[in-house]
Each structure stands twice: as structure tokens, then as C-alpha cells.
Design a protein around this nucleic acid. Sequence first.
DNA 1: CTAGAATACGAACGATCGTGCTAACTTGTC
DNA 2: GACAAGTTAGCACGATCGTTCGTATTCTAG
Lengths: 214, 214
Amino acid sequence: MSDADFGPASSVAAPRRRRADGERSRATILDAAARLATVEGLDGLSIGRLADHIGMSKSGLYAHFGSKEDLQLATLDTAAEIFTDEVIRPARQAETPLVGIIALCDAFVSYLERKVFPGGCFFAAAAAELDTQPGPVKERLGELLRIWHGILERRVAAAQASGELDPAEEPAQLAFELDGMLKMGNALFVLQGDTLGLERARRGIRSRLAAARV
Amino acid sequence: MSDADFGPASSVAAPRRRRADGERSRATILDAAARLATVEGLDGLSIGRLADHIGMSKSGLYAHFGSKEDLQLATLDTAAEIFTDEVIRPARQAETPLVGIIALCDAFVSYLERKVFPGGCFFAAAAAELDTQPGPVKERLGELLRIWHGILERRVAAAQASGELDPAEEPAQLAFELDGMLKMGNALFVLQGDTLGLERARRGIRSRLAAARV
DNA sequence: CTAGAATACGAACGATCGTGCTAACTTGTC
DNA sequence: GACAAGTTAGCACGATCGTTCGTATTCTAG
């Protein structure tokens, strides 16, 4: 199954970096930034604290990015790569499209349970924080959410084509409802600390899909 | 229909305030704080900007609260009152419990559409921002979310008692799914700016309730 | 091996943050 | 009308914010 990728924003041309240690530092910074941002917030995460956290000087870290906004945009793409590795990729090669949808949703719940990001789903946190602040970061977040829904949508359409799901279902509507349960599970899990919300998400998704069978 | 109220946190005993102008100022501050917090964030909203916004001095405003955390807690309760007025109250006096559930969900969507809070649902925004920061604010947010789900839950149970909904449905599970669609609609509405997400929430809720009929 | 570029650091900037202190004023009570 | 208490403003504090600059160090292409 070939899902669309969360490719990096097409605009930024890499300023042909040269040294290997710089590349490594940059990756270390972005990985820490993605994970810390779910706890402190993508805006709330300060460059000084991020630098302290990875044992680097503030100015040394800052030199890798032209501005905090550049750092945030790069962090978004890094988080998207992590999400792809932890959720999208493991849910490929399902026996049937419908099984693939369940695998994808289970992979999402597992990604929450395993605390891939310590503060829950990166995109749920970042979108809620920045959805009121116009600019390239918000736009990119909207783009990533559309890609994610597109992945769910195409899998629903495939399950309809294979005869597993009712063709009368609107794929985008079903994708909306599935993601609603996943995100609600995330919210409860992070806020209340127990896994009941994750269980509800798993159960709700299964019964919703059962109701959509032909 | 008597829903539980979002009463103020029981712990804080009002320090018997005395003058009418002070009470008025406090109300003005908290109303502005609740609405601004959905745009700038409850933590991101600074006392200086809030003071500027309502034409008051920073220290004059600050004197009403012992700390920023106190201001945030008071803002939570003010937002809960606004929510009660705009969502809970209008959805009372429904002909049947099931109609009441639909009225409640529609009132929620309307509260988003009318931009009662300019940055979308106050509690969705605040919960996503503060769910990783332990303390009284996070705890109170969790409490308010449980109250809200309790309201939905009790209405589901009432609809089961009246014979409108299948008694086999678990009320808490159905409340979870309904709120999931409402919050997903909120997220799409604020992030993308169009009302398609709200429409999807309305539609999904109606068909989910239809599926739960006896 | 060397030259030049990439990388990292320390220090400092102006701005803004939450939080106190003090003094002027308004209000409500006897 | 006086006095106590509540309200507001001005000012300043230490801390932290994003950002810039000059400089020392380290890698790598030739």
C-alpha cells in the first residue's frame, strides 16, 4: 500500500550543508525539539532550554536556523518523519484494505501508548497551540493534517473498492470520525493519565467500521 | 432537565470583596482573559498584554489576583460560566431526551460558529496547552472535562430510560464518541477556517445517534 | 599540509516576562 | 464628614526571551 508521504515542505532548498558533524547536530536538535515541543509547546519551547537539554550553547544551536520560525518549520518535518516511522510505516502490508485501516488506527493508539512523544500526539498539540496564529507554521500544520486525513480517506476508498466497506459511506466523513476518536483518546490519555480513553478509541473505531461493512 | 453545573472550584473561598467598581473590573478582566486565552493561549497570554487590551495598568490588574496561576484558575471558571450560558442552558427543555442530546450538540456547534471564543472552544484549547503541565490548572481542566462528559452521559442514560436509545449502548462510550466529533469539528474549523468540519460533526453525530436507536 | 569554510561558543543587546512596593485616589461605613 | 479599606497607577527588580556579533576551534577539499 503506497501512502502519500509527509515530505518536507517543498519551498526550502537545503543550503548545501557541508560538514558531517553539523548534520548530526542538526538532527539531534530537531529530534529533541520535536519531543520537547509536545511538553512545553512548539512556541513555548525556548531556544535556551532546548540548548540546555541537549548540552549545547544557545548561539551554537541557533546558528543552524535563521530564526525560531525556521526551527519550528524544521521541527514539524522531523515530527512528520517520526510519525511516518511509528504509525504509517508499521501499518503497511495489511492483508486487506479494511484490516489496513484497523492496523493504522491501532498503530496510532500504540504510538500514544508508547509515548513516542512524551506529551501525546505531536500534531494534536501543535495544531491546538498554533491554529490561531497565522503564518507558515499554521499553514504547514493544516497541510499535514490534510495529508493524514487523505491517507485515511484513500484507505477507506480502497476498502470500498475491495467490497469490504459500504460504497455509500463518504470516505472523508468516515476519516473525520475515525480521527475524531483517535484525537479524543489522545486528549483523555494525556490529560487524565489513564488508558481508558485509548480503549474507548479502539472500541469506537472497531464498531464504527463494523457498522460501515456491506 | 437538570444538568450538573460547572460550579466554581470549591476550594477557593472568595476573600469577601467589597467595592462594586472592583467587582466590575474583575469581571471585565476575566471576560477578556477567557476570550483572549483562546487566541494567545492561557499561558501565552501575558498580564501586560491583557492589561493593555482592556486599558488598565499591569499592576492594577495584577492586584486582583495573587498570582498568574490564580488568574488562570479564575479564568477557567469564567469560561465555564460562558460555556454554560452559551451551550448548556440553551439546550435545556427539549421535548425528549434524545432531542435534548441533538440540541446540546447543535448548541456546541453553534457556539463554535458564532465564535463565542475567537479561538474556538476554550476548553479544547486550554486542555491541549496545559495537559502536560502538572498543577491545579490542569487538574481543574480535567475536572471540567469530566463534568462535560458527565452531562452527555446522563442525557444518553435518560434517552435509554425513555426508550429512545438502545440500552446496550454504554453511555460513557457514546459520550466519548460524540465529543470526539465535536472537538474534531472545532479543530478543523479553527485550523482550516471553513465550516466543513462543523458540518461533518453535525452529520456524524446524527448518524451515530440514529445507529443507537432501538 | 594548508587554506577556507563550517561549526560552536561567550557575551551582550533590547524587549518582555511575572512579581513586588509605594503612593495616590476612590468608595463605603460609622 | 472622617476614617478604614479597596482600587489603581508608576516604577523597578531579576529572569528569560529571540537575536546578533566576534572569535576560537574543527573539519575537509585541494
